[in-house]
Amino acid sequence: MVIPGFDNTAPPVQACGLLNRFGSNIIHENLDFTLKSEEILGIVGGSGSGKSVLMNTLLGLKIPEGGKIYYYGCDRSRLNDRERAAMNNEIGVLFQGGALFSSLTVRENIMVPLREHTDLPEPLMCELADMKIHMVGLPAHAATLFPSDLSGGMKKRAGLARSLALDPKLLFLDEPTAGLDPIGASAFDNLILDLREAMKFTVLMVTHDLDSLYTICDRVAVLVDKQIVVADRLSEVQNYPHSWVKQYFGGPRSRAAQTAGRI
């Protein structure tokens, strides 16, 4: 399926003048945002600032009340159903809890997108699923386990494996390291870096993990006052003159993560 207007060199995601509101409660207003190709961008913002709403909007789960979203130069609202489905195959999502299908084993979970969108023979699909399981660092025997038998960290890895099933060009991660212990979290960070090197995808992640921000994000976008006020390298963002940004990056936790990142 060839998507008209698809431009590999255009930014993977671009939002122009986005407006989101629930009734009279305005979440985002005039929000502009661009994701660069093959970067890892972290979105930060206070609780209730609309990070999840923004992610759902960028994913197409929520239709914005105003503004436009472009994927690789294509206007999302002008794609027809088939083109939109083809575009969705270029996008992988890791939801916060993994969102694995609880009635399927890990291997079957990873095979779902393959089964739906390719005509691969069953044994090859199994092998590819097992390869993805290996790539995300799960033990081989995890393939036949059900999601309820997995720990939180394993669920995230399995969810990541499923989101990578079709080799997406664009990966959305919703708090990928939340709820993991520091060792597991930094292993997960390194996993994302390694996979990016091998698979060349662009990552947009919502995170509160300061260590992740310092170690793997190329750029950080700050969502306050219904807008992305700044999206830049961390050193620039830290000096941005806004009280919330100063508080966020000036707190003791942030300083600790920063020194740890330097060592």
Binding site: I133, H134, A140, A143, T144, D194, E197
Partner: peptide
């Protein structure tokens, strides 16, 4: 491309842990 080496290495390693069939 250095990415190719990563990919082939990852794919080759995947063979080491053959997953169990039920």
């Amino acid at each position: 491309m250095p990415g190719h080496r990563k990919l082939i290495t990852a794919a080759a390693e995947a063979s080491m842990g053959q997953a169990p069939r039920d």
